[in-house]
Structure formats: structure tokens, C-alpha cells
Amino acid sequence: MFLDFLQYCGRLAIFAGVAVYHCLRPPIYFRLIGTQMLEIGYFSLPVVGLTAIFTGMVLALQSHTGFARFSAEGAVATVVVISMTRELGPVLAGLMVAGRIGAAMAAEIGTMRVTEQIDALTTLSTNPFKYLVAPRLIAGLAMLPFLVLVADIIGVFGGFLVGAYQLGYNPATYIHSSWDYLKPMDVVSGLVKAAVFGFLISLLGCFNGYHSRGGAQGVGQATTNAVVSASILILTTNYILTALFFNK
């Protein structure tokens, strides 16, 4: 069991190393990177946006009821903006994209594996790492920060809506206290996390798909593994990155 786990980690690390190597060496397929960026970035906007707005809203509501107990309602705006940019933006966007994109990658590459399309790529003098894996890794790495930035803005806006229209804060004061206590590092750390999560989502989607075997059931298993392992890794690395950023 433990040995299996170590073997899995080793294979994943080698896969990641080879994949990164192929990201840097020509030929680079810009068209495919573009397609993947559109798929990961643009088409995930609705899902990520909805997640963000409701998270921001609930955050404002909860912190208001909590802080009201010791008359600290003034901190609601700050709490919303800091939690959103530092933690909830990247983590929730990451988890949603893992479900949407990681699963799709594993299923697509897995099907290509079991129908011998990956072997066919090789026989047509095309390296599957360059053609399939590298564009997805690059697109994941580039697009998640963009999605998280959008999620941050929408989430803070959700908090503002609830704060100003339901809880009766003064809109101008709310915006001021959101803005005044926000440090660039809060946003930047969130975006760096997002880039790491984007890389991990693509990596695990591709890895599980690439190594799937045994027909429809195998592809299903690969899809599940891709989503579960990506989600766990997102939560784990989130802690590690937070500790690195703010533990001074």
C-alpha cells in the first residue's frame, strides 16, 4: 500500500519532469495552446463567477452575524476582501476547474489512450507529450491566475451587494474599507497559488488520462482519480504555500 503510493508519486514526478521539459523545447503548438486557453479560461468563467459571487455574499453575511456579537461590524468588508483574494478565490476556483477541466482532460486523453490514438500520434512522428500534455500544462498555468483575478473581483462585489443592500452598510464606506486594508501581497499570493493549482490540475488530468487502461471503465477510473487527486493536492499545496507566504 505504502509502496504503491511511493511508486505513484515517483511516476507522477517523472511524468511532470518529462512534461515540463517538452513545454520548453520546440516544436511548440501555439494553436493548441490557444484552444486550451479558451477552454480552460473563457469557458470556465460562468462556473467560477457563480461560485465566487455566492461565496462573497455568504462571507459577508456570516462575518456580519459573527462580528455583530462583539460589535466589530466595521471589519466585514476587510474580512471579505482578504479571505476572498488570499484563500477562497484560488481554492474554490481551483476546485471548480479541477472538476470541470481536470475531468475533461483525463477523459479525453484516456479515450485517446484506449483507442490507440496516442500510439497513432507516435507513429506519425508526433510526440504525445508535446502535442497533448504541454499545451494543457501551459494553458492551465496561464489561465488559472486570470480566472482567480475575475473570481476575486466578483466575490468582493458579491460581498458588497450583501453588505450595502441587505445589511445596511454605507456603500462608500464599505468600498473604502475594502480598499484601504488590502495589500498587494494579498492578491499576488492568491494569483501565485492559482498558477500552481492550474499546473497541478492539468498535470493530474493528463497523467491519469495518459496512464489509463482497460476501456470505458479504465477511463472512468482515470477521470475520478484526476479530480480527486487534483483536489487533494490543491488543498495540501494551499496550506504549504500559505505557510511559505505569510509565516515570517
Binding site: 485517446m112 483507442t115 490507440e116 490514438q117 500510439d119 497513432a120 507513429t123 506519425l124 512522428s125 508526433t126 502535442y131
Partner: peptide
């Protein structure tokens, strides 16, 4: 080498002609 696979293994994301031309364009 050229290879004909048992299940044809055509790339289903590409139209027929791009499948045929794949080795010429990529390789």
C-alpha cells in the same frame, strides 16, 4: 513507418482530411 491500427485510431477531434494530413503537417 506507417501504421494502420486495428480500431483505425483516427483523431476524433480533427476532420478526415486533417487526419490524413497529420503526419505531413506535424512530422
Amino acid at each position: 513507418f506507417g501504421m494502420l491500427f486495428q480500431g483505425s485510431a483516427l483523431f476524433d477531434s480533427l476532420p478526415v482530411w486533417e487526419n490524413v494530413a497529420f503526419g505531413l503537417m506535424q512530422g
